[in-house]
Write a protein that binds this DNA or RNA. Structure first.
Lengths: 104, 104
DNA sequence: CTAGAATATATCAGATATGATATAAGTCCA
DNA sequence: TGGACTTATATCATATCTGATATATTCTAG
C-alpha cells in the first residue's frame, strides 16, 4: 500500500482520520476496500462507453446520484449495487471476476 | 436455468412465490443470485476445511448464526459479508474472482 | 459567452442487513 | 445414552444502504 493508494482511499471518505488509523486496516479489510474501488473504476469505464448515468440508473431502478456515488467509490455504496450496475452494462460474471481477481 | 437451479433458489427463500414470478427474474437478476450462491458454496467449502463457524465469526467480528446464514445462501446476507468471510478463510482476490467468474 | 446536458453533492425517510442472543436440532464418540 | 460440540432457526434493536429529491457544479456544443 503506497502513499497514493492511501490518499485515494482518504479522498473517497473511507473514514480514515489519521495515518495510524489507516494502518490499522487489516490486510483483509484493505483487500475489501480495494475490491470495491476496482469495481467502481470498472463501472465508470464501462458505463461511460455506453450510456449516461441517468440511463444506467433507470436500468437498475436506482437514481443518477446513486450511480455517481457508485462510480466515485463512495463508502455508502454496497458491493451488491456495484455488481448490479456492472451487470447492467452488459458485463458477464467472467468479466466481474476478472476485475476482482485483478486486485493485489 | 434448469429445474434444479430453480428448486435450489426457492429452497433458499429467494422470495419466489410462483413459477411465473420466478421467470420474471431478468438475466441480470438471475446472475446476481447465482453469484451469491456460488460465493456461499465457496465459503462453506473453505471454512469447513479450516475451522468452525464460531471461529470464523470471531475473525470477521460477526456471529455464528450469521455465518450459518451466509453458508446457506440466506437472502438476508450481503455479498459484502460473503466476501469478508471468504477473505477471512485466507482466500485471495484471485480466488474470489474465480468463484464469480465460474458463474454461468 | 451560454444554454442545455451530464455529473456531483446534500439530505432524508424508509428499507434492508447487521450482530447479538436464545434456543433448537443435529453430530459424534466415551 | 447422553453430554459436549457444532450448526441451524427465530427474534430483535440498531446500523447501514437505499432511492428520491433538490440543487450545485462541470462539461459541451453553438
Amino acid at each position: 500500500m503506497d502513499q497514493n493508494s492511501r490518499q485515494e482511499l482518504e479522498d473517497k471518505g473511507w473514514k480514515i482520520g489519521s495515518v495510524a488509523e489507516f494502518l490499522e486496516l487489516s490486510p483483509e479489510e484493505t483487500m475489501l476496500v480495494e475490491i470495491k474501488l476496482a469495481l467502481s473504476r470498472s463501472l465508470k469505464e464501462r458505463r461511460q462507453a455506453l450510456m449516461t448515468q441517468a440511463k444506467l440508473a433507470d436500468k437498475i431502478h436506482s437514481s443518477q446520484p446513486r450511480v455517481a456515488k457508485a462510480e466515485n467509490g463512495d463508502e455508502s455504496v454496497s458491493i451488491e449495487l456495484l455488481i448490479r450496475a456492472i451487470l447492467a452494462t452488459g458485463a458477464s460474471p467472467q468479466e466481474i471476476g476478472q476485475v476482482i481477481a485483478s486486485v493485489g
